[in-house]
């Protein structure tokens, strides 16, 4: 009897476990989740729709999660929180769970951008994430929340568009040794110095010669003394020329900065204060 009861309890626990896992796996966050009450319903809805549309278009999720204090959810820092949210709720799209999430904690004004997946990390390079953050931080500093989140969503779309075209936003780092101040630079400074010196002395010399004959008489034109009788501007022809500018891809002797993957989940962060 005791044995039957134990088996029944184990079965029940197993069932409960399965139910929990299933519930957790099916739990889905919206694209924009505001638990700090920064956005109106309309703003949140509109942002969410735009994020959903971009996520669909590039098969790479764009998410925003705003909380009062991230410490209520995780032990660690804002990066831990964003990473946990991304993975716990099964965010991301496609096989490699491509996505980017902006996590914000209002108490200490912390933010973190976390990119994940092959395409996610390709599109959101370290430089790209820096630029993305710069695009919304000025809004947040003015407490323009809706404007900042819109910048995040729209610029995420732009980064994904560039990546889809094979041109992710990245920073060129030259492998050539850095240029140092040398003889040529000194020569340039000297030439500029000599020209400035010459111009200064020439101006001073001009001050010494003030007895000069006048060649104009503009001071003797009375008010209304100019009468323009003919004023015609006749178009003759138009010449259009085009030329191509050298693309950065042709560069040699350097490399793009790329993305530094950190953490155990294969994602990359850019975090700070707003």
């Amino acid at each position: 009897m005791k044995k039957k009861a134990l088996i029944s309890l184990l079965l029940l626990l197993s069932l409960l476990c399965c139910l929990t896992v299933s519930v957790h796996a099916e739990a889905r966050l919206d694209y924009v989740n505001d638990y700090a009450g920064l956005l109106s319903d309309y703003e949140r809805q509109s942002l969410s729709e735009e994020a959903a549309q971009l996520s669909e278009q590039y098969d790479c999720g764009v998410y925003i999660v705003i909380v009062g204090d991230y410490r209520e959810f995780v032990n660690g820092n804002i990066e831990t929180f964003t990473e946990e949210v991304f993975h716990s709720y099964g965010l991301g799209r496609g096989e490699s769970e491509n996505g980017v999430i902006l996590g914000m904690s209002m108490d200490d004004r912390d933010y973190d951008i976390y990119a994940h997946g092959d395409f996610g990390n390709y599109a959101f390079t370290d430089y790209g994430k820096e630029q993305l953050a710069d695009s919304f931080l000025d809004n947040f500093r003015r407490n323009d929340w809706a404007g900042g989140f819109r910048d995040f969503v729209e610029n995420s779309g732009e980064l994904m568009r560039r990546a889809r075209n094979g041109e992710p936003l990245d920073q060129w780092i030259s492998d050539e040794p850095e240029e140092h101040f040398g003889v040529i630079e000194l020569f340039i400074c000297l030439i500029v110095g000599l020209i400035t010196g010459g111009a200064t002395v020439s101006g001073m010399k001009k001050q010494m010669k003030t007895a000069v004959e006048q060649t104009r008489a503009s001071g003797y034109v009375p008010k209304g003394g100019v009468n323009l009788r003919v004023q015609s501007d006749q178009f003759v022809n138009r010449v259009v020329t085009s030329h191509r500018i050298r693309r950065e891809q042709n560069r040699s002797g350097g490399h793009y900065r790329g993305t530094t993957i950190s953490g155990s989940h294969g994602g990359s962060h850019h975090s700070g204060k707003f």
């Binding site: 138009r238 259009v240 500018i245 050298r246």
Partner: peptide, 10 residues
Amino acid sequence: DTVTTTTEYY
């Protein structure tokens, strides 16, 4: 990567 210059003469 294309720069188009238009010059109009008058």
